[in-house]
């Protein structure tokens, strides 16, 4: 069995409720964070080697350390839950089944950044998940993990869900911020970067749902331990959306560095091609990236096994794998 750091409690009934989530160690990363300074939390994330799970793979700790901190200006954390890359449904899975994991990560991240307001920008098509998140946020307020002076720490945070309304481009972080300001989702010219002028022209960090959730195991186990998982500069575990002509479509958590072939054929993951046909092609990351023919998806051009890592595949490929069988292209 591969290591699980996000979905290890996936089979536990009621894990989407606060009670059950807390019984299984939920919110302990926030308790840990409050015993540290915010800079120490950023340092821990740097040590973990965590890279953005939204597509570009930028080191998260570094991104956080770029956040401008002018005196008297609010800072924001915005969670990118737009998930509009075709073939991708991992964030939906995480939010639907583990809403408190996202909320917990958001609190720890906001504390690290010194943000007192955090928004979850979710694609409008996911309205049923807005219900789920609103309920979970309500529970977190009631239990004292959100609001003023959280658990007596002196730190305060408000968290809100904000639905989009159907626009693929709003997954791009500056378009997302425009949209969150109630405008058309037209991307902004960079620089300035959101870290300096983001939401309402204030310093802002935009992170993907899964990136923020990964902060929870990082703080719980420590950045150094997290960095031991995975391969090279692709540390930790990663959620992959698998669909198309495979036996078991779904969301799987893999340890980075897993061979693509094992992912597609092993019983633990996709279980092979539907009706045992021959694999024709893999679309890594849905429809906005080039199709890889079967040979090139399992092996690199030099004949090495292709691994699921930022180095061996294009970044978006780490979001989704769509397999086509022999017949599909005829």
């Amino acid at each position: 069995m591969g290591k699980k750091l996000l979905l290890q409690n996936d089979k536990i009934p009621g894990i989407d409720t606060y009670e059950v989530y807390r019984q299984h160690g939920g919110y302990s990363s926030v308790e840990k964070a409050f015993k540290m300074t915010s800079d120490e939390v950023v340092e821990e994330v740097k040590k973990s080697g965590l890279r953005g799970r939204g597509g570009a793979g930028f080191p998260t700790g570094m991104k956080w350390s770029f956040l401008a901190k002018p005196e008297g200006v609010p800072r924001y954390l915005v969670c990118n839950a737009d998930e509009s890359e075709p073939g991708t449904f991992k964030d939906r899975y995480l939010m639907q089944r583990h809403p408190h994991l996202l909320i917990e990560g958001m609190i720890a991240a906001s504390y690290a950044l010194g943000a007192n307001t955090a928004y979850i920008y979710i694609r409008g098509e996911y309205f049923y998940i807005v219900n789920i998140l609103e309920k979970a946020i309500e529970e977190a307020y009631t239990a004292g993990w959100l609001g003023d002076n959280i658990q007596g720490s002196g730190y305060s945070l408000n968290m809100y869900v904000h639905p989009g309304a159907g626009a693929y481009i709003c997954g791009e972080e500056t378009a997302l911020l425009e949209s969150l300001e109630g405008k058309r989702g037209n991307p902004r010219i960079k620089p300035p970067f959101p870290a300096v002028k983001g939401l309402y022209a204030c310093p802002t960090v935009v992170n993907n749902v899964e990136t923020i959730a990964a902060v929870v195991p990082i703080l719980n186990m420590g950045g150094d331990e997290y960095a031991k998982i995975g391969i090279g500069k692709s540390t930790g575990t990663k959620l992959i959306s698998a669909s198309g002509h495979i036996k078991k479509p779904g969301v799987y958590e893999i340890e980075l560095g897993l061979p693509v072939e094992e992912f597609i054929y092993s019983e633990e993951y996709c279980g092979g091609i539907l009706n045992d046909k021959k694999l024709k092609a893999v679309v890594p990351g849905g429809s906005s990236v080039p199709i890889l023919p079967a040979e090139l998806s399992l092996k690199t051009p030099t004949g090495e096994p292709r691994l699921m890592s930022y180095e061996s595949l294009s970044e978006v490929a780490l979001l989704a794998v769509v397999c086509w069988d022999q017949a599909a292209l005829l």
């Binding site: 998930e83 509009s84 890359e85 075709p86 073939g87 991708t88 449904f89 964030d91 939906r92 694609r123 098509e125 996911y126 309205f127 049923y128 219900n131 693929y168 959306s241 698998a242 669909s243 198309g244 479509p249 779904g250 969301v251 849905g286 429809s287 989704a320 769509v322």
Partner: peptide, 16 residues
């Protein structure tokens, strides 16, 4: 376009 339901395809959304 893709509604994030690819693992349970085909699909349609009706309201929420």
């Amino acid at each position: 376009e893709c509604l994030g339901s690819c693992g349970t395809a085909p699909m349609m959304q009706v309201g929420k």
